[in-house]
Amino acid sequence: MRYILILFFTVWSFILKSQIRLDDFEIIKKNEFGQAIDLSSYLPKGYSISGDKDYTKYLQKGLDENLIVCMPNFPILVNSNGLKLRSNQKVLFQPNSKLVLIGNNLERYSILEILNVSNVKVYFPKIQGDKHYHLSSSGQWGMGISIIKSSNIYIQEPYIESCWGDGIYLGNKDGKNVENVTILGGVISDSRRNGISITSANNVLIKNVYIKNTGGHSPEAGLDIEPNSSNYLLKNINLVNINTENNKGYGVVISTGLYSGSRNRFSINIDGLKDIRSDIGLAFILTKGNFSRYRENISGTITINNFYSANNRKAKFRNFSGQSHSVDLRGDFYKTLQSVDFPKEMLMNNIKINKSFIVK
């Protein structure tokens, strides 16, 4: 009972901290957006503030013509083209700003696209996807925010809900990785595939993010670290004070099978992960099964400190068996597995530390 109360107050304080604080908003607006263009000035005369009109082309024109902008202070419908940001752009979502996606039948889309650009800052983005009114059943790539082959990207306190694919996606294109990405605070809820996916990145910090209620298409994780190719890069990936709750698959899953044969060592650091009521709080799927395509070595380091998980439907932690690889598991995680928080029967039934790991 004591652990449940601690977790309740931790999550509740997390939610409270994740709300837009008007004083923080006013400071950022004053310091960084004093000369900003309010994109409502690009809307047609007599525009609606009820979130019932598609103003995608007007917002995009404003973004194309201005580097420092404020979103209109009311909800706006956007179509499947989404909005595309430029290098050196700063975008401020005001307290009542919100992008609401019109339902579509596409397998992939990005509501806010950050593609092949650098030096972008987005503050308080509020985004709603079409998970509950998507017009087909195919695909899994409808993203709230996609960050692809871009560098020096800063996202503060995103509020993203009900995306057909992921709330936020970090990935590679044309052989170019994501570099230097920071995501601070915010809530990502009700994503169909993952709250956040990291497939290829170098130097990432994700801190104080709360991810909940993911479900609808595998892997259904709060946060999924999963390269799509051995040519991708997972270096210096840092998760700090992450809360996950009620995700149908996992709170956090590290799935590195397609990294097989890579010359790059991956490095993933987790400090402070708290999960409640996800199927599995934390999972390692290095090479699930003994598939021949995973024969080539996978090497890397996973450092985990301060992990806590409770009321999971299947397991607090699970390491799926598979091929043996050169992966070091470090930090206080192994001690945590043997503590009173993991009763012996839970340890024996749900955990198999196999040759995939060198426990240090």
Rank of each mutant, 00 (worst) to 15 (best):
L234D: 00
L101V: 06
K274W: 02
N116D: 15
Y133K: 13
L77I: 10
S41H: 12
I225G: 02
P75D: 11
P343L: 11
V122A: 06
F291E: 13
N177Y: 14
I153E: 01
N79E: 12
F25L: 11
N246L: 15
L39W: 03
N152F: 15
I351D: 00
S218D: 14
I153G: 00
S41R: 14
L99M: 08
R193L: 14
L239T: 05
V327Q: 04
Y294G: 04
G185K: 03
R2H: 04
N246W: 09
V120L: 15
K355C: 07
I225M: 02
G171P: 09
S87W: 02
K131G: 03
K355A: 09
G261S: 07
M346T: 12
L282I: 03
K176G: 10
N208Y: 02
N290K: 12
A36D: 04
S299M: 08
K352H: 08
S118Y: 09
I285Q: 06
F9T: 11
S162A: 14
S118K: 15
L135I: 03
F124I: 03
N247K: 06
I153M: 04
N79V: 08
L5H: 07
N202I: 11
G62V: 13
G186M: 11
I198F: 07
F14V: 00
S278D: 03
L282R: 03
D23K: 13
G171S: 15
F284M: 01
T301G: 00
